[in-house]
Design a protein around this nucleic acid. Structure first.
Lengths: 222, 222
DNA sequence: TCATTCTGGATTGTTCAACAAAACTGGGCG
DNA sequence: CGCCCAGTTTTGTTGAACAATCCAGAATGA
């Protein structure tokens, strides 16, 4: 009961390492020594290599032949691509959704949890709830492939967020926006909800891109 | 020059095994013994396990804990999901495409190659060209994530096609359709091209689903 | 002084051997 | 006929080993 699916050591370790990467414990660009990290995670080097394959395929790590793997360093092109994917998937998902789908409940829970986290000043929690909210939107499609693909893209996006200073500025303005979208969905006005989501994505993208540009200008001098 | 990217033994082996699965050399549901397959592919068992992780994540293999991996057995729900993904990605890709994109050339090449293959009676070649044609459509977006995701879905779809008898019936009616879409694109009439593509997908889905239903009824009696 | 070459050490890529744990197989028994 | 139980096979994981490659710093030469 405590462990519904043992799922094997490799996937478990992959989840742990993924969490560390997303949480920013490992900085983008940092090389990951196989022996060292294997010791840190208490797994064998072979098992760690299986984990590396998975996370590399997910886009969180990059692999250079004979030079090992490093944490992927997000690029503006990558962020742009991810937002295009988000628009392409999320907006139709919401527009064609069934108003009484189970995932609507999850959306509501995410909005509530985001508010609780904001009250507590837990900005990382706010970010997590926001991500879950949009994951729930995609879950409206009942498509396992879309859901998995979207989760992957969101993990990459979180990695990019970790680069920016003050992630609170990124999520705070959009808290009420999520609530508004949820209300429109609950009123079965899917077209309005989708339009509002599209606007959300445009603005969010702009905020992230400007923050990113400022970062790159600051890091790479003239 | 002969080998532009060594890319490592694992990914090379993954490509080989992927080709074997797609080509139908390994039947869906068949269990893959690690030691045996490792010997067949002339790689170590550890390397093969890395390959298994990759292809499992791609959806071509399934992994049961302590029971090894087997070739994934396509389901009607899976095919349905894949066609939804195709519609969601391909139609907007075509609708918003730049008429002079480089991928349009690849589309033309695929149409030509499909015709050549049909003349030669090479139906598997026709199928490959058809797949490449739609991959080129997605390439119109210049989105690496969409392209990779779509390629994965198409690989799964090919696995499902392998189940059906007489795959020629699946591709033959759509050869001219591809040509018509290409002409509309070359005339910069993207809306018409997208509409025709949507119609193509609807009809193709129906053909595949009926073939699939006939198969399942024949296999599972009563 | 500066650029080049060389060399030693560290890291990756891959294989092999070993073992615990779980699943499958076949026979024995109620 | 169904259940249990030992033996065998297969998976899951680890550790060690070795070649190939890369990296840093010393040695060399202009």
């Amino acid at each position: 009961m405590t462990d519904p699916n043992p799922a094997g050591l490799a996937e478990d370790t992959a989840a742990r390492l993924r969490a560390q990467v997303i949480a920013g414990h490992l900085r983008p660009g940092q090389r990951l020594s196989e022996t060292r990290l294997a010791a840190d995670l208490s797994v064998s080097r072979n098992t760690l290599r299986e984990v590396f394959r998975l996370l590399t395929r997910e886009g969180l790590l990059t692999h250079a032949p004979n030079r090992g793997v490093s944490v992927a360093v997000p690029s503006m092109a990558g962020v742009l691509d991810i937002y295009r994917v988000r628009r392409l998937i999320e907006v139709p998902a919401l527009a064609q959704a069934w108003p009484r789908h189970a995932a609507v409940l999850r959306m509501a829970e995410c909005v509530a949890q985001a508010r609780i986290a904001r009250e507590a000043g837990d900005w990382r929690g706010v970010g997590s709830a926001n991500m879950s909210f949009h994951a729930a939107i995609v879950a409206l499609t009942d498509s396992p492939r879309l859901t998995a693909f979207f989760a992957q893209a969101m993990a990459e996006l979180r990695l990019a967020f970790g680069l920016l200073d003050s992630p609170e500025q990124l999520h705070a303005p959009f808290l009420q926006e999520n609530g508004a979208i949820l209300e429109l969905v609950q009123q079965s006005d899917m077209d309005a909800a989708a339009a509002r989501l599209a606007d959300y994505l445009d603005r969010s993208e702009r905020v992230v891109m400007t923050a990113f540009a400022r970062l790159e200008n600051g890091v790479t001098p003239g």
